[in-house]
Design a binder for these strands. Sequence first.
RNA 1: GGGCCGGUAGCUCAGUGGUAGAGCAUCUCCCUUUUAAGGAGAGGGUCGGAGGUUCGAGACCUCCCCGGCUCACCA
Length: 521
Amino acid sequence: MQETNDLVKSRLNALEEIKKLGVNPYPHRFDLTANSEEILSAFKDPADEAESEAAKEKIVSVAGRIMAIRKMGKASFCTIKDDKGKLQIYIRQNDVGENLYKLFKLLDIGDIIGVKGFVFRTKMGEISVHAVTIELLTKSIQPLPVVKEETTESGEKIVHDAFADVELRYRQRYIDLIVNESVKETFIRRTNIIRSIRNTLEKYGFFEVETPTLQSIYGGATARPFVTHHNALDIPLYLRISNELYLKRLIVGGFNRVYEFVKDFRNEGIDRTHNPEFTQVEWYQAYGDYFDSMNMFEEVVENACLAVNGSTRINYIDTEIDFKRPWKRIKMVDAIKEKNGIDVLNMTKDEILEFMKKKEIDFDPAISGNKGVLIAALFEETCEESLVQPTFVLDHPIDTTPLCKPLREYSMEQLETMRKDPEQVIFVERFEPYINKWELGNSYTELNDPVLQRKLLEDQVERGRGGEEETHPLDEDFLRAIEVGMPPTTGVGLGVDRLVMLLTNSQSIRDVLFFPLMRPL
RNA sequence: GGGCCGGUAGCUCAGUGGUAGAGCAUCUCCCUUUUAAGGAGAGGGUCGGAGGUUCGAGACCUCCCCGGCUCACCA
């Protein structure tokens, strides 16, 4: 719907006036010879008058969006913004003629123009382009927020009337990108982080693949899916909650090292660190174990940090974080011991339960019958908050995941007896990297015993998630792939959005997504 | 989902029950090296929505919508 406020009306009027001048306000192309950055860095002050005259012969051609106009009768300045930055344009009626100057006076902040002219320095010292001719490239009829920048005598920049309404900034990101300087920088860093991750993985021979987003059976994580429907096949389809089970099929198929940047979709709450669609990178390495993954994970993240910050140390809000390898590694039970002074390995289920009650630790009463789940809950409630510097937490109870291999120290007989005893907890070769109290990823020595795999997945289906949650479907095709035989393998998932948040000092996941999900108006 | 905070002109904001305001932007006029350009004048609003209280509501009450923070939930 066209807004018909005065500002739009006046721009529509200007549009008509421009057409009356015989000017097409939406021409098809424009030849550029330089961008603002190149012009500003290439300029050298002429040494004398002869050089100054010669400089006027060097015509540059630039284009950008008008961000500010300062009219002074028959001469004007305007500031344009292009892909690389801002540049001041000087335009004089004497130089461009009466008609073009008339056109210029009809232009507004937000219009996109092309300028041909020579580079010079103004009396006030600003490198600018002195227009010989200008061309309107796109007339804007929607007013932009006018943000003014003041440079104080000490060189400090003060921004006046910044476009600050967070809701509008997310809903109209194109405007946010135009008027808020730091926004674009964050997204450039995001892309550079992703590029760095890709480079590190490629360096170690990982092969980039693509797997389905639309899946007839979802799996690889525990989350509620988005459900859709395929008309021609008349079947329900799900947006993936994970790509894990597909990457494992590729390992079975003979790719030894694969990775995928993947959008996952989880039908759950939205908050500062959760968006319904989010990006992970997952990589799988045949013949490796979770120690190999820890090493890769450290290197991938350290490299990404170096790539965008030039240092392994960053400041996130008011916390200094150092990504330098190697990171601290601690077993989950040892983390609990350090924090609480208890050894859950020597405690019965009831003793742990009692301890948690005494410490007034909140937990779902439905888990009270399972020692492994209790240990995981105790860890989350008491230890996560102190995991600020990069730390790998190792060896989770088997009850937390059906896709991970038990510790290598157990004998086969031992596993059989432990499984039958509810007071025995089997631990698996899993790690979670914690940074700034956030889980930044997840990794296993992958389970490849098809009999155990089937049992664990069937148990999970049976348990469901209790209550009204959708039951987790059993993926028979995945089980068949594991039955065909997956070599010893380790796999990793890394939460890209959270890593980008840390490395760009962004407080909300919405600040690192161009178009975060917003409730439609 | 709970609690707290917010939504007033295009943007940023003020306005504690009595005629809706400011700066920037916009429009008109002046101004040929300005830079938060400057000078003179003008226009611009269903105060997020719907009810209610009151002689009178932007403000007080109820419900709703949209956000932010936070807690909870969520492998």
